[in-house]
């Protein structure tokens, strides 16, 4: 009886041990992620336009104000278009680049290092340099276009080109970054599988389609979800290069929230906008999870 009780006590102690190991990570997660999000939600229910003494509870007032604002809906549309284009584009290009970088040829490590160079440069520096390169009057890109007899392009000054230019710039950084994850995944696939497929007469596309893709499914899911979150909260290139313009064509929600809070001092409105962005991110990530889970099932 005593032995059984001791076993029971040990078993119940053992039950708690995994949670103890998780505790430090959870404390950090709570302090730096969950608590600020909760504080942000609380903030979204107050107005900060007035002085601290006159700070008042407005309930859903900030949300109502944002939903009435036509600029918000335009920014939301731009943010969704931006995400719908950027995430699949970056994921597909990163996968393609990883397959290339996974080839067993002499000097491939040099190519891999070159591909990774954009990742090690700060996004602020990258944005500034691209801003100079793409300058309408003095930029190098336009200099090259003119040499080939092509017309000068406005790039970041045109409402039709600015968003696509920013997608290009962040993909220049994003594609090699996400490539690293795919490359790690590719190198984890046993070579024997490809050899067996080759013996069975599979061509390169069939090997990719029926071996590589299924075995990379989890990594694809991870990359797509992480990329979605990163791009939904993209800020620096917009702040540095366009400030939401021209004609609000790059006014992503994250930048709009920043401007509302830190330029205009409307912290309540900014927090409300961030909450909306958080909900969009949560829904998108949930859909992506479901999509990959159902395929696995």
């Amino acid at each position: 009886m005593a032995v059984r009780r001791a076993d029971h006590t040990r078993a119940s102690t053992m039950q708690w041990i995994p949670y103890l190991f998780l505790l430090p990570a959870f404390i950090l997660l709570f302090t730096f992620r969950i608590a600020p999000a909760l504080a942000g939600f609380r903030e979204a229910l107050y107005t900060h336009n007035l002085s601290a003494a006159r700070r008042s509870f407005v309930g859903w007032g900030n949300f109502a104000h944002i939903f009435r604002d036509p600029i918000f809906w335009k920014s939301l549309r731009i943010t969704l278009v931006f995400s719908l284009v950027t995430n699949p584009l970056q994921t597909a290009l990163a996968l393609a680049l990883a397959v290339l970088a996974n080839q067993r040829v002499r000097g491939i490590s040099i190519f891999r290092s070159v591909y990774l160079l954009p990742v090690v440069i700060s996004i602020n520096v990258t944005s500034t340099i691209w801003g100079l390169l793409l300058n309408k009057d003095s930029g190098m890109i336009n200099g090259i276009l003119i040499q080939f007899g092509l017309p000068r392009q406005p790039f970041l000054l045109s409402p039709d080109q600015a968003l696509w230019t920013i997608i290009g710039i962040i993909s220049w950084v994003g594609v090699p970054y996400w490539m690293m994850f795919f490359l790690a995944g590719l190198q984890g696939i046993p070579q024997a599988l490809f050899e067996a497929a080759a013996i069975d007469g599979a061509n390169a596309w069939q090997s990719f389609r029926y071996i590589t893709l299924p075995l990379l499914r989890r990594i694809i899911a991870f990359v797509l979800i992480s990329d979605t979150v990163v791009n939904l909260f993209l800020f620096a290139p917009v702040w540095i290069l366009t400030r939401g313009g021209p004609q609000l064509s790059t006014n992503l929600l994250m930048y709009d929230a920043y401007r509302r809070g830190f330029v205009w001092g409307d912290m309540g409105g900014s927090a409300a906008m961030m909450m909306i962005l958080l909900v969009i991110a949560a829904i998108t990530v949930a859909v992506e999870f479901l999509l990959f889970r159902s395929r696995e099932g």
Partner: peptide, 9 residues
């Protein structure tokens, strides 16, 4: 923002 847009056409 408005003047910047007008400036750019």
């Amino acid at each position: 923002d408005t003047f910047s847009d007008i400036r750019n056409g």
